[in-house]
């Protein structure tokens, strides 16, 4: 296809992506170097018959004017990146110097907002992804043995957790594990502890969110594996049987190697999706014990701590984008090498 025709086909799509994905990234980058103007403080002289006193006051008018004139705020360099809410270099150095053991040091670091969120995001990504692959594979094997008529309904119900809106799916589970809900109530009876609450302890909250993650994503892995199982080469299976391979050996040496490329695909999609974990934290109301990178950006933008913190949100966004690139780097490098070899 000549370049000119190619461009005439792709320009609407490319324009949309440049305007609303590429430029926003530039805008995020730019914003991350600015912070909101400080309030304009004036020294006001109050003169009374007994003499003059000087006091300082916020000039709201001037503040609003300044903010309207330069909405980006004032230049802050890399200040936002290094402050306490982001990479927190000073705090880490201090923790390193004062902490008497490694565990005390990590404990202090993980109390910093950015590292706390990063820790949960990474833990979630790397716990949920393998579990999703394993559970999805097991479901696919089981569904593959179901007689024909029942396959449709089985697949229908298996798809539900994935198709449901993440915010809604996690809400549904949240209501069930509520101390007054069915699962929460039952757990209290089982453990004979009327004060048991899955929401109270950070560890339990982490586990609950991860369980939700596996529940939500497992159907995706299941469907991909299930489709892969349909294309397992029957000849190879039969010759393996003739050679005396038992069921386990056939699964291990024929089925699993056939599905390995699918594992890479699922892992890639899952890493991307799990890294942006966000909605369950809102639904589970879990921000006290578990925050994610996406959640802290949301929190800054929503302005829940007063004003909307564009600079702070932008800095976290840039760090998140860098994180995504690191996560994807191995995949892209491999594709690039394969492409270069093919060319």
């Amino acid at each position: 296809m000549p370049h000119r025709t190619f461009i005439s086909f792709i320009w609407p799509s490319a324009l949309a992506m440049i305007l609303f994905i590429a430029l926003p990234i530039v805008s995020v980058g730019l914003q991350s170097f600015y912070v909101q103007h400080e309030q304009v403080i004036e020294v006001v002289e109050n003169c009374t018959p007994f003499g003059c006193t000087e006091s300082t006051a916020v000039n709201t008018e001037a503040t609003a004017e300044l903010r309207a004139a330069e909405p980006l705020g004032r230049f802050n360099g890399a200040g936002t990146y290094t402050n306490r809410n982001h990479l927190a270099f000073n705090e880490i150095a201090e923790a390193w110097n004062t902490a008497d053991s490694m565990s005390a040091f990590f404990k202090q670091v993980l109390n910093l907002p950015f590292y706390k969120a990063l820790a949960f995001t990474l833990a979630y990504t790397f716990v949920v992804t393998p579990l999703v692959i394993i559970l999805g594979f097991m479901i696919a094997l089981a569904v593959n043995r179901v007689p024909g008529v029942l396959k449709g309904p089985t697949i229908f119900f298996s798809l539900l957790p994935m198709i449901v809106t993440p915010l809604i799916g996690s809400l549904i589970l949240f209501w069930m594990i509520d101390a007054k809900g069915v699962i929460g109530g039952t757990l209290q009876i089982i453990f004979e502890d009327p004060n048991l609450s899955l929401k109270a302890s950070p560890t339990l909250t982490w586990i609950t969110i991860m369980v939700y993650g596996v529940w939500h994503h497992a159907p995706f892995a299941f469907v991909v594996f299930y489709a892969g199982l349909q294309t397992v080469p029957q000849d190879t299976l039969e010759s393996a049987m003739i050679d005396g391979a038992n069921r386990w050996e056939r699964t291990r040496h024929v089925v699993i190697p056939h599905l390995t490329p699918l594992v890479t695909f699922i892992a890639l999609i899952q890493l991307m999706d799990n890294f942006r974990v966000f909605e369950p934290i809102i639904s589970f109301n879990a921000s006290a014990s578990a925050t994610s990178l996406s959640w802290i950006i949301y929190n800054d933008l929503r302005g829940s701590d007063g004003a909307m913190l564009f600079g702070s949100a932008a800095a976290t966004s840039m760090l998140t984008i860098i994180g995504v690139c690191i996560l994807l780097a191995p995949v892209i490098l491999r594709t690039w090498r394969a492409n270069r070899r093919a060319a």
């Binding site: 992506m17 609303f20 990234i25 996406s294 950006i297 933008l301 840039m318 995504v324 994807l328």
Partner: peptide, 18 residues
């Protein structure tokens, strides 16, 4: 496009808002 697909949507929102 794959890299764009991988970016959490909320990181872009912080670019849009202002």
């Amino acid at each position: 496009a794959l890299v764009f697909r991988a970016m959490p949507h909320i990181t872009l929102v912080s670019g849009y808002l202002l």
